[in-house]
Design a protein around this nucleic acid. Structure first.
Lengths: 353, 353
DNA sequence: TGAATTTGAGAAATCGATTTCCTAAATGTG
DNA sequence: CACATTTAGGAAATCGATTTCTCAAATTCA
């Protein structure tokens, strides 16, 4: 049997209440008693039973991370794990536990969260965008259960969320290129309907307008985000009457196709044409040249989400609604000649499990 | 206040014991009482307090997943999250909770696990290779705490682990190439000291010996696993007096460099030269041609790990030591002409978070 | 010195389930 | 019909902490 508070009490010749008070730093226990009891606790290798403690305190010290989880999801979304790491990091510091709650289908998310709330199996919930539904947000609001969504929902809601600022991402990309001296900048690769793409594009255009730089219609090329498609789009761009001297790509894959086209035209990067893209995936680290990227700092986003959530748990009155994080620029050789590049050294994937 | 067992008992005109017995399917409760009580539970929206239940039952229904966790770890190891998904999947089915316990440094793993065991904050532990130390395995063995390591430790130990079979990976790669009719097969990209590389190489060689096929020394090229290095190695291979008609690459990055070299030599794949590599990373899905891979089914490995662990928790007498999973072959166009390929359709990374 | 106040620590209730008796009623048996 | 045997369900202890209330001892103050 494990050592309990009673064992410590008996051994220290005090009552269980006193031991409890020592553990909880009650002011009514004088220094010498504290020391004595702590000594006994140490000697008996006493660890308080967390279950008993949480049970009586009516807390769980646990945060649920609700997300869609499927085999090979790391392929479909390498961001998710980084977010998770950020959340875990902050929770661990405050002695909170993080538990993963996976759903397979959006239709499960409602029931899953209902159960968490009803059974009080967590003190708070982080809901990943992949598990967000309208019903779910309503439930979270009505139940007043501490929560935060990762990713702004695509509908109006009073729910609490955190997301990155795509408009600013577009601005950052544009500003960087302008600072490097490029003026004829093209934008490559999303579909007109895609909100994220549109926001980035608008951010880009706002900077161009601000600087008084012209963006001809043909400099904005829509398409899907496959590398084949972007290869074709880039060929088109390079055939324009006025050739762009820089291109912003919607993501790594798009950039990959674009670079292939640029190589085929025997153009030098960044001298003849510079390239910048959004997001930073492992792929970018083996591309030649390594592309400058505007990255969502997803790890930081996870940390912020956790911080906000904990604050809300501590202070339920708090009415934080939404939060936006700033993207970060990683300058690499596709916009700066080698040598001047301040590239973060890439780690290559470990082959072991 | 939440509804408790007493509220249900009062409303149903029975005692709390009866309600408890209904929940636990005790045989001494007749059908009509069961129905009546269940009806009341439903009506009152009663959910048993899990903390109270686990407390008295002396279980946690929680499994700790101990691993090194750092920002951008998804970059360094895309496998980890897939393993996690597999573990979670199986645990959820059995109503177990999965909680992530991250460490930053190997030196923390011992203390971390000690605490989990002492505080009984989990019923079992999964330790990822990145957190495995000799001390830790000793602790797990001595404490008889239910556990399983992901990845065979690189030292002798009685600890319980699960891993993939690299020797068989090598065999699978070789067999597949032989079946496709290739006979002059080269092996590209690891360092002599790397155990995994050596095992794969030996698996390959064993098949070649079995088939009576010769492997000239120059067909085995050692190097680091960068794509630059493998580009050079592949150039060397293609300059051999007898040119190989197939090449096995140590990983995706190696394959990436090798393919670049093959393209530069204007060779057709797989007609002039076939290529196969180990592991399946997102990179492989945008390579041209898409490479056939021998993949560790890490998701399945996570599932098996969880299954074994749960079995051990249920039956502590069980003396399972080690477990090995079989790699899977994903045939794509680098070894089979298009059309005959049975490639799994690749999902491209989602750009949203 | 005696009264008032502060301090230190214990007794007992509590949290919400489970589980072990135990008993009354129902049923079966000779 | 009397007695033995099931059956159904309740009373109460329990798990290991926390917390409130209480009180004796120590200290301060007039």
């Amino acid at each position: 049997m494990a050592v309990t508070i009673k064992d410590v009490a008996r051994e220290a010749n005090v009552s269980p209440s006193t031991v409890s008070k020592v553990m909880n730093h009650s002011p009514s226990i004088p220094e010498r008693t504290v020391k004595h009891v702590q000594e006994v606790m140490e000697r008996l290798h006493y660890f308080p039973n967390l279950q008993a403690r949480n049970f009586v305190r009516k807390t769980t010290r646990n945060i649920a991370f609700v997300t869609r989880l499927e085999p090979h999801i790391a392929f479909a979304n390498p961001h998710m794990f980084d977010i998770l790491c950020g959340v875990q990091e902050v929770l661990a510091r405050k002695d909170y536990n993080l538990s993963i709650v996976g759903i397979h289908d959006l239709s499960e998310s409602m029931a899953t969260v209902e159960r968490i709330i009803a059974q009080k199996s967590a003190d708070g919930i982080v809901v990943h965008g992949s598990a967000t539904t309208r019903d779910l947000t309503n439930l979270l609001i009505e139940s007043k259960f501490p929560h935060i969504l990762i990713g702004k929902p695509n509908f109006e809601s009073q729910v609490c969320w955190i997301d990155t600022n795509n408009f600013i991402s577009g601005q950052i990309a544009a500003r960087h290129l302008c600072e490097c001296g490029f003026k004829k900048i093209a934008f490559l690769g999303g579909t007109r309907e895609d909100k994220i793409f549109t926001q980035r594009l608008n951010g880009f255009l706002s900077v161009m307008a601000e600087k008084g730089l012209n963006v001809p219609d043909e400099f904005i090329q829509y398409g899907d985000t496959s590398s084949e498609c972007s290869f074709g789009l880039m060929n088109k761009l390079l055939a324009c009457s006025v050739r762009p001297d820089a291109v912003i790509c919607e993501d790594n894959t798009v950039a990959f196709g674009a670079i292939r086209s640029i190589h085929q035209h025997s153009l030098k990067m960044p001298e003849d044409i510079a390239l910048i893209c959004f997001d930073n995936y492992p792929l970018s680290e083996i591309m030649d040249p390594m592309p400058t990227v505007v990255d969502i700092n997803v790890n930081d986003m996870g940390m912020q989400a956790a911080t906000l959530l904990l604050r809300k748990i501590k202070n339920p009155e708090l009415q934080v609604q939404t939060f936006t994080t700033l993207p970060v620029l990683k300058i690499r050789s596709s916009t700066r000649p080698c040598g001047t590049a301040s590239a973060a050294p890439g780690k290559k994937p470990a082959k072991n499990i």
